[in-house]
Design a protein around this nucleic acid. Structure first.
Lengths: 231, 231
DNA sequence: CCAAAAGTGTTCGTCCTACACCCATGT
DNA sequence: ACATGGGTGTAGGACGAACACTTTTGG
């Protein structure tokens, strides 16, 4: 807090939050975007977001918007960074806190998404976006790549029950390269964090692949005692 | 940007930035704090910071304050996160973007620091601070520990010319544990990023230790080609 | 019976860890 | 001559990377 200036003498600024919403669908990493409904740039592609209201934190604002657009609560959500260049928004001086969210693409409410004019784009087929939203997305992708290696984020993008080949596909989509089947499986199982179920998923092969669940509780415990998930 | 609301209908919010300023002095990791000069909590210990003005970004605001307090430009500065709880500041609704800075404690302007009533505290002897500043500090320490392992941040806290034992002391102060001399030296030199000088520093031993410089240019190049600094 | 994906072990090299002694110098 | 911190090498174990074939089953 600066020397010799009181609160009331200060400039207030518009504060927004924009969500970079990742989903994983059919082997492809996707982003949820929608057509902006205010000027300037009405009708152009934009991240979903909102101004931060007086009686809510930035996180609460983001959760409010995510609920509105997808019908989901308890979404995985992390702060990316603040975008505060003076001229970033020609509409008005406005600071935006970027946040990235990971959602299970099989769980969201399709009707709500459509009603808001939102659409999923593959991350490598994104349109031009308004303001600095393309930059936010590229920052979020970098962050996702970095974090997915060290934290079990991936599971937030898959259904509760998933197969090892599905998980591998996801990581291949994030890292943009092929991984070795045997090493991937070995490494993952070595953590002892996957619970093997009795069911198989036969949607992608005749043989069928066993389903697993991620043991979130066990992970929490291990993490507290200094365990490091590294893929 | 939210549906159906124009910019002018929105609430503006006070935006501040607070700097967690690290320095390394005589084997101890320290933080620069000062006595707050506005109410509420005038006279209590606070991080140095400022409100963000209309014509500056958050980063620019932080650099302005850092220059004011220490006389230094080109300080290493990274965003930590946004603190936006509605009730975090009883003075007014105010969002603060925390940022951490690393400075060379031998370079700052002592007079300026004193004139602003600022003071260095060892990180494990910090006083009670105003608002959520203790939380910001603990977040910044966690971030520093995490980042120092993967990025060559340490060099930002030492003079341009430093000895390997000094560097090791710094990492021991950050990680709060003793490291093995031989392994530490071997690992560091193996990167080929330290330039050995012909001078010795004799301030801490009779034999004297060779001085080194960090090769920032070479690091930039290596980093771009996917090199990972890991200590 | 064939196509297509699931599942399984071993070897090799690299990197991390642990560990103890000699060197140079100022007092 | 001695106290103090600077500087050096090696051996063992753990972990990551590379690599190919068998199994299951629906059509």
């Amino acid at each position: 807090m600066e020397v010799n200036r009181t609160y009331t003498e200060q400039h207030k600024i518009l504060v927004a939050t924009d969500c970079i919403v990742f989903g994983f669908d059919e082997g492809v990493l996707k982003l949820l975007v929608f057509k902006r409904r205010i000027n300037p740039f009405m009708g152009e592609w934009s991240l979903i977001g909102s101004f931060v209201d007086e009686e809510e934190s930035v996180t609460e604002a983001a959760r409010r918007v995510l609920l509105q657009f997808t019908g989901l609560e308890n979404i995985f959500l992390k702060e990316l960074k603040a975008y505060s260049d003076v001229d970033r928004d020609p509409g008005a001086r406005c600071i935006s806190i970027g946040q990235y969210a990971l959602i299970r693409i099989n769980e969201y409410d399709k009707e709500q998404v459509e009603r808001h004019g939102a659409k999923w784009f593959a991350v490598d087929e994104l349109p031009e976006m308004v303001l600095d939203h393309n930059k936010m997305i590229s920052d979020a992708l970098d962050r996702l790549k970095e974090k997915a290696r060290r934290k079990p984020l991936g599971f937030e993008l898959l259904p509760e029950k998933f197969t090892i080949p599905q998980l591998q596909n996801l990581y291949e989509a994030i890292y943009q390269r092929k991984l070795d089947d045997r090493n991937f499986r070995k490494k993952l199982l070595s953590f002892g964090l996957l619970i093997k179920l009795d069911e198989k998923d036969k949607t992608s092969s005749k043989k069928g692949a066993f389903l697993y669940r991620f043991d979130h509780d066990k992970y929490k415990n291990l993490e507290e005692s200094g365990f490091n998930f590294v893929l």
